[in-house]
């Protein structure tokens, strides 16, 4: 829960505040550090949707290149940044990677579901990884924010569906243990028992509509409420989830 500092004791303004927020971060998995191949792939991806790519915070995953020395990884990292990508961290790896992190000044991030025994605090663990699609040939730059994705089947436990750049409409239920995400709004014409995250890239006006809400988690633009914080009276039929300031509100439609 984002703890708003509005209730600071004597009404004085604090110089800094810490806030727990969820956000969607894309992972750039590097499968080859070979100069021409990497450069070509980076340039091609950037050319597809330069505006989108330049603003997209990235975590670089060097998992596939574990065997390479730190110097090679540094070169690869510089190449990625050189193409205009905004790298905000490195995915946890071996000791060599720690050296790369040290040298580049980037933090090492432990992602949920990625081995690693360190239990990251819940918010850090929660940012769902975008649907695993490292190659992504299909996602080739559709018109941004006009994409509505319609899912006609129930979304089952263990499945994750992300509507990139638009709204998501689910005709069936979203099961416990399933997760649906959208850059825009989410409409669920069944029962939401799993997790729904709307406006995952920061659209605060995004909303979640569902025929019945019994969710594990609802989130809008990074603010979220987990099942424990959703009251019994907020659960039920025809619910609307909105973000009001910093608070997730659940109301009856």
């Amino acid at each position: 829960m984002p703890r708003d500092a509005v209730n600071a004791p004597s009404g004085t303004v604090q110089a800094i505040e810490f806030k727990g927020r969820m956000m969607l971060v894309s992972i750039l998995r590097v499968n080859s550090a070979e100069a021409p191949a990497l450069a070509e792939a980076l340039a091609a991806r950037m050319a597809e949707a330069p505006d989108l790519m330049r603003d997209m915070p990235l975590i670089v995953d060097f998992d596939a290149l574990e065997a390479l020395p730190a110097a090679d990884l540094m070169v690869a990292l510089e190449r990625i940044r050189g193409h205009g990508f905004k790298v905000i961290g490195l995915q946890k790896g071996n000791a060599v990677l720690d050296m790369v992190a040290e040298a580049s000044g980037l933090p090492i991030l432990v992602l949920g579901g990625k081995g690693g025994t360190e239990a990251a605090p819940r918010p850090a663990q929660s940012p769902p990884r975008p649907a695993p699609e490292p190659e992504k040939p299909r996602e080739a730059a559709p018109a941004v924010h006009t994409n509505t994705r319609i899912v006609e089947q129930p979304v089952r436990s263990g499945q994750q569906i992300y509507a990139r750049g638009g709204d998501l409409i689910v005709l069936g239920a979203v099961s416990a243990g399933a997760e649906v995400l959208a850059d825009g709004h989410i409409h669920i014409h069944g029962t939401l028992r799993g997790r729904a995250l709307a406006g995952v890239r920061g659209l605060e006006s995004a909303r979640i509509f569902c025929r019945r809400l019994d969710a594990e988690l609802v989130s809008i633009a990074g603010h979220y409420r987990i099942a424990e914080d959703i009251l019994d009276r907020e659960r039920g039929e025809n619910r609307l989830v909105t973000l009001a300031g910093e608070t997730i509100q659940i109301t009856e439609i």
Binding site: V155, S157, G158, G177
Partner: peptide, 12 residues
């Protein structure tokens, strides 16, 4: 039930 739901997802 949850495991069956997961399995149905895999079957699909």
């Amino acid at each position: 039930v949850r495991d069956s739901d997961r399995m149905l997802g895999i079957l699909s």
